[in-house]
Design a protein around this nucleic acid. Structure first.
Length: 193
DNA sequence: GTAGGGATAATCT
DNA sequence: GATTATCCCTACG
């Protein structure tokens, strides 16, 4: 049973609601090397009035996708080496997104192991930079839609409770105490308990 | 198995 | 020139 999540879904929830509803869904990437996917088990919300949000200082060429319609990808590079994958959320013009922080590997595990250079399952997608590398997502896909192949989400069932806590890697003074991080309680594929 | 520090480049001011 | 929503290797117990 695999139903592609349609654009309506992304637009009928606030960013905070969406961050929680994404848990348990399957993120799928189809490439020429094969299909890879994983269950979303950890997310963080970034809102327009939130100092830690890339869009807080206004629109720039890099963060432009965040100000568009919900249901599109926003990919950026940090620390010179790593990439992070976000799902644009909220209303058009507000600059909000949900950062995907961890996946539970599902399909195409062999391909992910090759791309990551690691074999341990819990070391393939347990972090924002790792899952982007494992799925083979590239920065050029920033701004692409998420309701059609090659990159899309499928509905899934969430069996465990959602845990809510503070976000990771936020500098002091940048709304670091907001409880905008969500993860599946007891799941061993999250980046950090 | 845990803790600490260094790498590295696009982006914006 | 400052900033950045991380990862990985190494050194210890």
């Amino acid at each position: 049973m695999s139903i592609i999540v349609k654009e309506d879904f992304y637009r009928s929830h606030s960013s905070l609601e969406l961050a929680q509803k994404l848990l348990g869904m399957e993120l799928v990437h189809e490439t020429t090397e094969g299909l890879c996917s994983g269950i979303i088990v950890e997310t963080e919300a970034y809102l327009h009035d939130d100092k830690a949000c890339h869009a807080f200082g206004g629109i720039t060429p890099r963060n432009r996708p965040m100000f568009g319609l919900a249901g599109y990808a926003y990919v950026y590079q940090i620390y010179g080496i790593h990439h992070c994958f976000n799902i644009v959320s909220g209303s058009e013009g507000y600059g909000e997104a949900v950062l995907i922080r961890a996946l539970e590997p599902r399909l195409g595990i062999e391909q992910m192991q090759i791309r990551r250079g690691k074999t341990a399952l819990n070391d393939l997608c347990s972090g924002p930079g790792k899952l982007v590398q494992a799925l083979g997502i590239r920065k050029t896909q920033s701004g692409d839609s998420l309701f059609d192949p090659p990159l899309y989400l499928r509905n899934g069932n969430l069996s465990s409770a959602i845990h809510c806590t503070t976000r990771i890697g936020i500098s002091p003074g940048k709304d670091e105490n907001l409880l905008y991080r969500f993860y599946v309680k007891g799941n061993k594929f999250i980046s950090k308990p």
